[in-house]
């Protein structure tokens, strides 16, 4: 167990594993996402209440879901950074924060465009939307803080603390639709209940969530590899790897 933990912290070991898994993540991710989106766009039945505008759900839910789970992963990595000083955890936080920022922006943007025909407005200051906007600022703050501090170790610790403080926002996002009266509809998927949608709607939605998850995995591997090469460029193994043109 401990040996595995140490291996996991080794950038060299991670680099090899990531390189091996990345083609699979990319291929399966693209296939699942495309099948889910084409199915959702062209073949899923129309919603009886919202009409065709509901088809935005097939990108709104995956991006919103990823935006939150990336933050939870970053927070877990932040704990590892603070407690065990594991290099790779900090590399992860730094590499995926911009991806989380883009996905949060996308979920807000698609939500606004969906809101116009459905609620009659682009934006309302209700709990769900506001807490997602705070998530966007948290991602932006983590990126900016990391860039503002030159020393790698202090930057890692400062960003980890910021990410951990911001994690209080995640349950607020999750339960905002239950705690407060909001315009936003309640969660589409719940672990404990059967989905309230018909099968032809939730299967493509599930496929696009999975597809985007895999593509996020690919993005995380790619960006972590870049960060590792930059940090470890003085080591012999990176030198050999770069000169051989692998990776």
């Amino acid at each position: 167990m401990w040996q595995f933990f140490h291996k996991l912290g080794s950038p060299k070991w991670f680099f090899g594993i990531a390189t091996r898994f990345m083609p699979w993540l990319l291929a399966i991710g693209i296939i699942l996402l495309l099948v889910g989106l084409v199915w959702g766009l062209a073949f899923a039945p129309k919603d009886y209440l919202q009409g065709n505008s509901y088809r935005i759900i097939f990108i709104h839910v995956p991006t919103a879901f990823l935006a939150q789970s990336i933050y939870i992963m970053m927070a877990s990595a932040a704990i590892v950074t603070l407690v065990w000083r594991m290099k790779l955890a900090d590399v992860f936080v730094k590499a995926v924060a911009p991806v989380g920022l883009v996905f949060t922006f996308l979920s807000l943007f698609t939500g606004a465009v969906w809101g116009k025909p459905t609620w009659g407005t682009w934006w309302v200051w209700d709990a769900r939307l506001t807490s997602m906007l705070i998530l966007l600022f948290l991602y932006g703050g983590a990126i900016a803080l990391d860039r503002a501090i030159n020393d790698e170790k202090s930057a890692a610790r400062a960003v980890a603390v910021l990410v951990l403080v911001g994690v209080v926002n995640i349950p607020i996002i999750k339960y905002s639709v239950e705690w407060w009266n909001t315009l936003h509809q309640p969660a589409t998927f719940k672990l404990t209940e059967k989905p309230s949608m018909p099968v032809e709607m939730w299967v493509p939605l599930l496929l696009s969530v999975l597809g985007l998850y895999l593509l996020f995995g690919w993005l995380a591997c790619m960006r972590m590899k870049t960060e590792i090469v930059m940090r470890e460029q003085k080591t012999r193994w990176v030198r050999e790897l770069v000169m051989a043109g692998r990776g």
Partner: peptide, 29 residues
């Protein structure tokens, strides 16, 4: 049925940002 502009805007922006992020990350590497 009139919702085309909304739906297609979302899918367009999503495709551009996702593909852009992937290409940019790969080129940066």
């Amino acid at each position: 049925e009139g919702h085309g502009p909304y739906v297609w805007t979302c899918y367009g922006v999503f495709a551009v940002l996702l593909v852009g992020l992937m290409i940019w990350s790969s080129r940066h590497h």
